[in-house]
Write a protein that binds this DNA or RNA. Structure first.
Length: 667
RNA sequence: GCCGCCUUAGCUCAGUCGGUCAGAGCGACGCACUCGUAAUGCGUAGGUCAUCGGUUCGAUUCCGAUAGGCGGCUCCA
């Protein structure tokens, strides 16, 4: 009788003797367990123990459990697709964050009606209680069986070739080729099959809740050289309630969409006449942006940064020196050609100059560094600029303020000695995180991108040293540190700060990047204490990334309800009747004298309507005044959450508001 | 850049399988109302149905191109 170790979710282990032929499913009889982890590997519940293994249950409401559930649901989708569209060829169908997809090669793209029909067919399949049955096949068998599935054949071929980078492909990722058969719950007849490494849930009956979300096109195996397949995205959850919660989350995210809030709150727009991806900020958006920049400037000044300004346009020569024209040209606006002279017959008399909109600020900052001889005494030299750059984003990726074609980086370049690098990176990371916290983000993790073994410049030991320095600085922050091996740009390692917003989404915010390339290309030097010429270390860092993007992140994080210090209108005065307007205007004047942005609603709406309007504009403080308040020299607060504080003396009210603004707290 | 979808009043959206079909709500404006914590009532103005071209006796409706938007892929702050 085989002996196995059973480890429960809490980690308690129990040695157990089981009859020959016992399956994982017989060990874990709880219906919420969808697969088992056997010696660390996820296995079907049909797995037969041989003795000596450690078995753990994987319930459906865990990350692994959901992934299996979603993967199995993807199979159900594929089966439904091939039932309704028999000519459809299968691509791949993995689980992803919050769901799954499956790619198909079909005659025509799927329509919303198709999705509805597919969803219905999937319900039928699920109800019929098909069993997922794993079957090991030889490569030849697989080829024979899947001869009508060209993409699957390609995957089989890939497995034969280089198996290393196939880790994400569920189809052929395992040690052996396997096919999963879907067997009818009653008759045991094979209804469908798919090349797949598994594992899968035992039967379709344990798929409690799913929904098809949308269809879209995707290149086969992610390359634009390959044919376009039609992808269907879906989601699946351990319970109807979990699905409902997920859909509610999506709805909430949609309500917070910065593009929507941007026009509802009259903050910015993208006039068609200007061009795709180029925003204009309206007065209210302008206030928020000004406050964001203002506070950032103050903090940078305190931290020893010096402010520079550079033009938006430059001759191509600069980007030849920097190398951007070699490796970044397709991200740049095409050049304009100036100063060419032609003779009367149109022949070229004088060659023109190409000018480019700048896609990055660093080359210009390097010119400032190189404008005169630099001493080690000046280092670290920290040059800061709100530098507007223009990048020619492909039309399909432009997305509101988060992916624009013109945007302003809060860009700084720090030039320091090798010896200063460690301290500089350390204090820099602290500075960055502190500042982000002041803007109201407080949940972070760090990501360290290390050398791509193929594409890099500079020597191994310099990389090694810089990477270690970054790692040490990151670890000192006591934050979660995620490694991104090989993810660095060719010119140096980087740390990025990822922030989680109010509804748990993560955004890449700041990046701190060491650069071994540009100081070399620009021939940057400083004179060291011993009189020798040395090359400085260059660190790029942007805190917001771009102000527009950070603006969008904060807008979504706060759902438009900015803390008072950022709110475009901090106080709205609301008179009970026209007779109280004058009194409120006097209060407003006093607030203004204290630097508060205040308006009085003098429209002829009723007071309730004015409250509703101010509420919809997400004004932090409403000051209401009627006869009682006037008599008492007071105002009545209404806050954004609907609570009230009536009859507050004007001086106290001003102090309260001023205090909330000064402390930059959310109210 | 590629695939699909979308574009009707300032905003959100109805509507026409080609022929009084140009509509609603909100917003704006005007008049009345003067009101204590999320919508007072009545009225007025606003659109060559994105642009250009084609098919047709006739196009907002069908076809094509262009521009912009949305969802993805690829790429990235």
């Amino acid at each position: 009788m085989p002996q196995i170790t059973v480890r429960d979710i809490e980690g308690h282990e129990e040695l157990r003797e089981v009859p020959e032929g016992t399956t994982a499913g017989e060990v874990f009889t709880d219906r919420s367990v969808v697969v088992a982890r056997v010696d660390g590997q996820l296995r079907d519940l049909a797995y037969i123990v041989s003795g000596g293994e450690v078995l753990e249950p994987v319930p459906v409401d865990t990350e692994d459990g959901r992934a299996v559930l979603r993967h199995s649901t993807a199979h159900v989708l594929a089966q439904a697709v091939q039932q309704i569209f028999p000519e459809a060829k299968l691509g791949i169908g993995p689980p992803i964050k919050d769901g799954f997809y499956y790619d198909f090669d079909v005659e025509r793209p799927f329509t919303p009606e198709d999705l509805a029909a597919l969803e219905k067919r999937m319900q039928d399949i699920i109800k019929s209680g098909q069993r997922f049955h794993r079957r090991v096949v030889s490569e030849d068998e697989a080829r024979a069986e899947l001869s009508h599935e060209p993409y699957k054949l390609e995957l089989i071929g890939l497995k034969g070739g280089s198996a290393e980078d196939m880790g994400d492909v569920m189809e052929v990722g395992g040690a052996e080729l396997t096919i999963y058969d879907n067997l009818d719950g009653k008759t045991g007849e094979r209804a469908w099959c798919d090349l797949c490494r598994g594992p899968h849930v035992p039967t379709t009956r344990v798929i409690p809740a799913f929904k098809l979300m949308r269809s879209a096109a995707a290149y086969w195996r992610g390359s634009e050289k390959n044919p376009m397949l039609q992808r269907i995205y879906g989601t699946a959850w351990e319970s109807r309630d979990a699905l409902k919660a997920h859909l509610a989350f999506l709805e909430e995210a949609e309500k917070r969409d910065h593009r929507r809030l941007g026009s509802e709150l009259d903050l910015f727009s993208f006039p068609e006449e200007i061009g795709s991806g180029l925003a204009v900020f309206h007065p209210k958006g302008g206030v928020i942006r000004r406050e964001m920049e203002h506070y950032s400037r103050l903090r940078h000044e305190e931290a020893g940064y010096e402010f520079v300004n550079t033009p938006h346009l430059t001759k191509g020569q600069l980007y030849e020196i920097s190398g951007h024209l070699d490796w970044y040209a397709e991200g740049m606006y095409p050049p304009m050609e100036l100063d060419a002279e032609y003779g009367p017959d149109g022949e070229l008399k004088k060659a023109g100059q190409k000018y480019y909109m700048k896609p990055m600020n660093c080359p210009m900052h390097n010119l400032i560094f190189g404008a005169r001889g630099r001493s080690y005494r000046e280092l670290p030299l920290r040059l800061f600029e709100f530098g507007t750059v223009y990048r020619y984003e492909k039309s399909g990726v432009v997305h509101g303020l988060t992916r624009a074609r013109g945007f302003t980086q809060d860009d700084a370049h720090i030039y320091c000695t090798q010896e200063q690098m460690a301290d500089e990176l350390d204090s820099l990371l602290t500075f960055v995180l502190d500042l982000l916290r002041d803007y109201g983000l407080d949940d972070f993790y760090l990501e360290l991108s290390t050398k791509d073994p193929v594409k890099f410049v500079g020597s191994d030991d310099v990389w090694e040293k810089a990477t270690e320095t970054l790692r040490e600085a990151a670890e000192r922050q006591k934050l979660e540190l995620v490694l991104d091996p090989g993810g660095a740009a060719f010119y140096g390692p980087k740390i990025s700060v990822q922030a989680r917003d109010a509804i748990g989404r993560t955004w890449q915010m700041s990046t701190i990047q060491v650069d071994f390339n540009l100081p070399e290309r620009f021939g940057l030097e400083y004179t060291a204490a011993d009189g020798s010429r040395q090359r400085p270390v260059m660190i790029h860092r942007a805190l917001f990334g771009s102000i527009e993007r950070f603006f969008a992140v904060l807008l979504e994080h706060y759902a438009g309800a900015f803390p008072a210090w950022l709110a475009p209108v901090q106080v709205m005065g609301i008179p009970i009747t026209d007779g109280h307007v004058e009194y409120l205007q006097d209060v407003a004047a006093q607030l203004r004298a204290h630097g508060i942005r205040v308006e009085v609603d003098t429209s002829d709406d009723r007071m309730q309507k004015k409250i509703r309007n101010a509420q919809k504009q997400k004004v932090p403080f409403m000051l209401i005044a009627g006869d009682d308040d006037v008599a008492a020299g007071a105002v009545s607060f209404r806050y954004r959450d609907g609570s009230q504080n009536n009859g507050v003396p004007v001086a106290e009210a001003i102090a309260e508001i001023r205090d909330a603004v000064d402390r930059r707290v959310q109210v």
